[in-house]
């Protein structure tokens, strides 16, 4: 059986994680192609509905990457995001998807290597957990994904 390739959505703050992803690219750092980035003006923009929506639409894992605590461009956006992530984790446990499929990370725009590390770390975690219970019927394999990109 082909190896499970999870679909991961990363909600990234423009001021840190998204720039860190750029830096990781400039540094030619490798990180799994499973991670799809969504740029946000601030992680304070994430909402329970958006996080749930990602899972409902087929994500196997979701993470939110914001600025280091105390460094938010909008002062408290990342603190609020963390609270919402914690709330959504409980909700995902109730639904049966599992709160461990959602995580909040903090990093700065200069942490390109850390960005790649988070992407690898989280992808490994989701691979370990297997497909989301909502996607048990279907999960794209490496071959299918290659076909998708062609």
């Amino acid at each position: 059986m082909a190896e499970f390739e999870p679909k991961i959505i990363a909600f990234c703050c423009y001021y840190c994680a998204y720039s860190a992803a750029d830096l990781a690219g400039s540094m030619r750092l490798q990180y799994p192609a499973n991670v799809r980035l969504v740029e946000l003006p601030c992680t304070g923009k994430v909402d329970v509905r958006v996080l749930l929506g990602a899972f409902e639409e087929g994500a196997d894992g979701v993470y939110v990457a914001g600025c280091l605590e105390g460094d938010c461009h909008f002062l408290k956006g990342n603190i609020r995001a963390r609270k919402r992530v914690e709330y959504t984790k409980k909700l995902l446990d109730e639904i049966g998807v599992g709160g461990e499929r959602l995580e909040m990370y903090n990093l700065s725009s200069s942490m390109g290597p850390r960005f790649a590390e988070i992407a690898r770390e989280f992808t490994e975690r989701i691979k370990g957990l297997g497909p989301s219970p909502l996607n048990r019927g279907y999960s794209p394999t490496k071959e299918e994904k290659a076909g998708e990109q062609r």
């Binding site: 329970v48 509905r49 749930l52 929506g53 409902e56 109730e94 639904i95 909502l134 048990r136 019927g137």
Partner: peptide, 19 residues
């Protein structure tokens, strides 16, 4: 409105989990 969206999505996901 927001909580309505969250509840509806949660119920749909619960059901989807059961196939």
């Amino acid at each position: 409105e927001k909580e309505t969206g969250i509840l509806a999505a949660s119920l749909r996901m619960l059901r989807k989990k059961e196939g």
